[in-house]
Design a protein around this nucleic acid. Structure first.
Lengths: 177, 177
DNA sequence: TATTGTTATACTCTATAACTATA
DNA sequence: TATAGTTATAGAGTATAACAATA
């Protein structure tokens, strides 16, 4: 059981096999090529989790951006505000570590959120190198709205892959959060 | 059943709830903050598929790059070579469409692969605007090696999330390939 | 010496627009 | 006029290195 089906990582699997139609087209005529995307076989890519995950991630981020376009908030900005909201007083290093963002990049993200009066940096009294991060009053209010829109986005995901599959996905990937 | 558990998209779920220890730390003392990443709660992010998928995708790409570092091939380069190998004669537009890559970006990817003698552009006789893409003999040979390493990477994924989970993931996301 | 926040650089990737040569 | 390939630009994101202030 454990050793079965190892080969199909690199072998073409049934569903995405190059369609017979496309094969025929090219067989008799060197010039004819498939012009429709669905006639192009993916070969080994079919068996790669990373390829599927990347395509899905692109879709999901685009839907997130689209759904929150009215409030002009991108996924990373949302994650930063959510973590600060749940852990007020956090340092920049702590946020960066928790979210896997480079601390250099977080500087710019916070600059932008601070300009928009959603987040504020407060000098720490115990360690004067670091900043305590807080949402502003407006930030708190805005985050509530962002979370509503993010929940709407999440429903789009559910519609796209199904409620049970979405939950299974969260379970499978829980270790990476 | 269909309407149950809708709220937990924005509510903190059990597993990633802010630990009592961290909450205690901050309760009596405004200055104390969680310094360890695992003491920082994620709040609404826990319920977002996009967040888990993004973190997983980062891990999986890093492992792919690491595993294929000896041959200096990145995920996108691998996907381009695999599709050309399986569909020789394809135009740049067809490859770009199939993989969801901007055609402007594919130009640079192909420049790089062509410099390395892995891929060649051949002027089409039927449509002089377009190029027929082929692997070189060396490209064919190299791709075989790349596929072996990619299969090794895929085994890392299996070790990380489990064989059954990896297969379930591929099933759930099959529609995005 | 080490760490926090910052600035800077380089490279990948996404998203556009515009140009050329064909069709 | 539309399309294939190309060039260019701008912004997000990743990966580094180096610096000042502070620990």
């Amino acid at each position: 059981m454990r050793d079965a089906g190892e080969k199909n990582v690199t072998a073409s699997a049934g569903r995405n096999e190059l369609p017979a139609r496309a094969r025929r087209k090219r067989a008799g005529n060197g010039a004819a090529r498939p012009d429709d995307a669905d006639e192009v076989g993916l070969d080994a890519l079919v068996g790669h989790a990373g390829y599927a995950v990347r395509r899905f991630q692109i879709w999901i981020f685009q839907d997130f951006v689209r759904t929150l376009a009215a409030v002009d908030i991108r996924p990373t900005q949302y994650s930063v505000m959510t973590v600060i909201g749940a852990n007020p007083g956090l340092s920049q290093m702590a946020v960066a570590k928790r979210l896997g963002i480079e601390r250099a990049r977080l500087v710019h993200l916070l600059d932008s959120l601070e300009r928009r009066k959603l987040v504020k940096r407060i000098k720490s009294k115990t360690d004067r190198r670091s900043h305590a991060l807080h949402l502003t009053a407006q930030g708190e209010l805005s985050l509530t709205k962002f979370k509503q829109l993010a929940a709407e986005h999440e429903r789009h995901v559910e519609e796209k892959i199904g409620k049970a599959n979405r939950e299974r996905l969260l379970q499978i990937l829980a270790g990476f959060t």
